[in-house]
């Protein structure tokens, strides 16, 4: 075999690290205007291709555990009860009652009025308390009400706030309003982490998702999140891939590392592993951590547990061996 050594590798061009300052709506428009378009066919083809990666053995075991630590265990129903939230919290801290080697999940995610229940149950466990505020899921309320919603959740002990953007304002071109609201909510969050839900199913086009991602990042989001889980189209792999490209480019541009949360419709381990491959090969291994990637899901956790047991013992166990929440 002819050995061909790599040689003469040029240095990669240095990235200019300059903070993007948005002082006016004009600044915002010109920054968004500089973003590249998205080719839908190409994006979906790339997502499908990454979906064919095959994770085996140790990689699969490690990826399942990583996915568990990235779950925001969620219950967002009108019929939620304090009992259900307590059960959810117990499961979050120790997902498999019979196997203490299973790591806890990243957070529980509940409506603001149930935050105090979660706080009391989780105690000092280290599991975060995320709460959906800002008139979730529609966002159709005045800014004053949205901010009050956020402050109440934070006061009750939420460590993470999942807000929704004003899709009506975005789609009508009033991007300044979208930006200002995020800035105001970020301020109201205080020390709590802010996840900004773009509701990509209502933005419809990939170009819109890219622009909305940048608005959220420029306005101070700690995370950008795909969906509320309350509309017809929730997280998809192409949309998540696109948002990961946005956080990667934002990090290269500004040095700030923003997280991504894929929420809604992710139910199987197979899907979760595909998402991790997309994270790994789009944004990079830096994002393979609950600090920078989350799954917003409820039923996913039990499937992860079932596949984890399968990996450990070689056989599947009955689904009802894992507690419902």
């Amino acid at each position: 075999m002819t050995s061909v050594a790599a040689h003469g590798r040029p240095e990669l061009p240095a990235t200019t690290s300059r903070p993007v300052r948005i002082g006016s709506e004009h600044d915002l428009r010109s920054t968004l205007g500089g973003l590249s378009g998205v080719d839908a066919v190409g994006l979906e083809a790339r997502a499908a291709k990454l979906g064919t990666r095959s994770l085996k053995q140790d990689t699969k075991r490690a990826a399942i555990d990583l996915a568990i630590t990235m779950v925001d265990l969620t219950t967002l129903e009108g019929a939620d009860t304090t009992g259900k939230v307590r059960a959810l919290c117990t499961k979050a801290m120790r997902p498999d009652a019979s196997d203490p080697s299973v790591p806890p999940v990243a957070a529980v995610c509940v409506y603001p009025d149930l935050v105090d229940v979660a706080v009391r149950t989780l105690g000092t466990s280290g599991v975060n308390i995320a709460s959906v505020a800002t008139a979730f899921p529609s966002g159709r309320a005045s800014l004053a009400i949205k901010l009050a919603d956020v402050r109440e959740a934070v006061a009750a002990g939420a460590t993470e706030i999942d807000m929704v953007i004003d899709r009506g304002a975005f789609l009508s071109g009033n991007i300044g309003k979208v930006f200002d609201e995020i800035v105001a909510v970020k301020e109201a969050c205080g020390a709590a982490h802010l996840k900004v839900i773009l509701e990509t199913g209502e933005l419809v086009t990939y170009d819109n998702v890219r622009r909305a991602s940048w608005i959220a990042m420029l306005a101070g989001a700690d995370f950008i999140k795909t969906s509320t889980g309350k509309v017809g189209v929730n997280a998809t792999i192409p949309v998540t891939l696109l948002m990961l490209e946005a956080v990667r480019d934002f990090a290269l541009e500004t040095g700030a590392v923003i997280g991504v949360k894929a929420a809604g419709g992710i139910r199987t381990t197979k899907d979760a592993l595909k998402y991790l491959v997309v994270v790994n090969e789009t944004a990079g291994s830096r994002w393979l951590s609950p600090d920078f990637f989350r799954f917003g899901a409820s039923s996913l956790l039990n499937d992860l547990l079932m596949q984890r047991t399968k990996q450990a013992t070689g056989s599947y166990v009955r689904a009802d061996r894992f507690s419902g929440d």
Binding site: R53, L55, D58, T59, G255, A283, L288
Partner: peptide
Amino acid sequence: MSDLTPLSSLSSLEYA
């Protein structure tokens, strides 16, 4: 910036 690189590293998810 250095803490971002290498973006392509598979170190945390090295495919078996």
